[in-house]
């Protein structure tokens, strides 16, 4: 596709997303993304959001990479929350209590 055709296609897409009812622009999609991920979008907005995922290749792929980033972050230091030791080292307990006594 020539550069001109690509630009025209993006312009048409931008206009369609902006003006057709029940559509979101990519910028609006971005604004809603965290609420969607947190499960905080009301049902109607969720439907509109999910429709955008279906029709917009860029946002669909962006979101897949965004979700993968979250997965990778969560596992970057091992799985899940940090293992909690049964107790703190005794010398640390004593140091804290001694510091309090001043």
């Amino acid at each position: 596709m020539t550069m001109l055709a690509t630009r025209l296609k993006r312009k048409l897409k931008g206009a369609m997303l902006k003006w057709l009812p029940g559509m979101l622009t990519c910028v609006q999609f971005e604004d809603f993304l965290i609420e969607y991920m947190e499960g905080d979008l009301p049902q109607r907005q969720r439907t509109v959001f999910e429709f955008h995922i279906r029709i917009c290749r860029e946002c669909r792929e962006y979101m897949a990479a965004y979700k993968r980033t979250i997965e990778v972050t969560g596992r970057a230091y091992g799985n899940g929350a940090a293992p909690v030791p049964d107790e703190v080292p005794e010398d640390l307990v004593q140091a804290i209590l001694a510091a309090r006594r001043g």
């Binding site: 206009a15 902006k18 990519c26 609006q28 999609f29 971005e30 946002c59 962006y62």
Partner: peptide, 10 residues
Amino acid sequence: QFDADSCRIE
């Protein structure tokens, strides 16, 4: 990144 038509650049 987004272009002037609010389309995502990806």
